[in-house]
Nucleic acid binder design. Structure first.
Lengths: 178, 178
DNA sequence: AAGTCTGTTCAAGAAAAAATGAACAGTCTG
DNA sequence: CAGACTGTTCATTTTTTCTTGAACAGACTT
């Protein structure tokens, strides 16, 4: 009978040992720790950092079940996390001949990672912000004694948006050079 | 008897109306909405966006109790939020002659806001990351067949940190120009 | 020094976010 | 087409984060 970890329960004395499934090597453990830290810096779920860290530190493409096994996280989390990483472009799907299940590797191009992150996580908020900026403008009442104060504030926020729309392209360009 | 909102319950028919305390004007409401959105973009608590938004949209300096009243949040939240904003440098303490309680206005200099944010929220993660980078380096085992793969990955992460340490100063500099 | 007035702290509760795992829907295979 | 294999979805549970409010500590006032 085959255990979940993929090992055979043949050696009564040692069976439990391997129930833990494949071991991670030191490099993998450190990579995962590093990307968990990065995930927390970006306020992303830990599981996303774990998955990316594992793929990043493993030469071979891994399947969803490989990830579940080695990280001991649920299939649901792994699936969600992979979906997120895929949509960002942080993960590449690799075809392994003769194998049905999809396999993944980490995308390591900084340009792709950065632009995917900006596109998925930042741009939506900026779009939303533009709408609110218009609403803010509309809320300034011509009769209000604070009118001038409010117009000055509005101008300030506008400047901030300009700043962002100036900085982001620079970041993307620079990212391409690393 | 004085109600919490600071209004007197003298007009039986209208008493409830004013229990709500000071009204926010349209500009304030829109500003608060805008900064709640910004807070969510930065994964910060809503209350921080509310407090900053209120200060940003109000010409007069406000005290902690003013904020509690107008935003209808607890004193604890307001105190926590102000502490956070103060440490970031997003809020200025203003001395109002003859009044004991501390009053606050919003700091609107993009340079100060950006550098405060980077200092408080990003730098600690970067420092942590540097440590983990060293641990990652130490985890590469000379006997491991993956040694070259691992060294290449290590080089990649190093490049990312270089990127960040190149980009952040640019961001700060540009922020000074807006 | 007793009494106010201010603001902070922190335990407890509420809300939000993330992880789990079982059911499900496709897809391939024989 | 029945059965195995893959991956997704989503209701539930768990964990984390935020908020509340009451107790507290310090500072000013008289």
């Amino acid at each position: 009978m085959l255990t979940k970890g993929g090992s055979l329960s043949l050696l009564p004395g040692f069976a439990e040992v391997d129930l833990a499934g494949p071991q991670l090597n030191g490099f993998q453990r450190e990579s995962i720790a590093l990307f968990i830290n990065a995930a927390s810096a970006l306020s992303l779920p830990k599981s996303i950092g774990e998955i990316y860290g594992l793929l990043f530190s493993t030469p071979e493409p891994l399947s969803l079940d490989d990830i579940v096994e080695r990280l001991r996280i649920s299939k649901g989390s792994a699936s969600e996390g992979l979906r997120w990483l895929k949509s960002l472009g942080a993960v590449n799907s690799v075809y392994v001949p003769g194998v049905r299940r999809e396999h993944f590797t980490a995308e390591t191009s900084l340009r792709k990672l950065a632009s995917g992150y900006l596109r998925d996580r930042i741009d939506p908020h900026l779009d939303n912000g533009q709408e609110r900026l218009r609403a803010l403008e509309g809320s300034i009442d011509g009769e209000n004694p604070d009118k001038h104060f409010q117009q000055s504030r509005l101008g300030q926020v506008r400047g901030w948006y300009q700043f962002i729309s100036k900085v982001l392209p620079i970041v993307k360009t620079l990212a391409g050079k690393f």
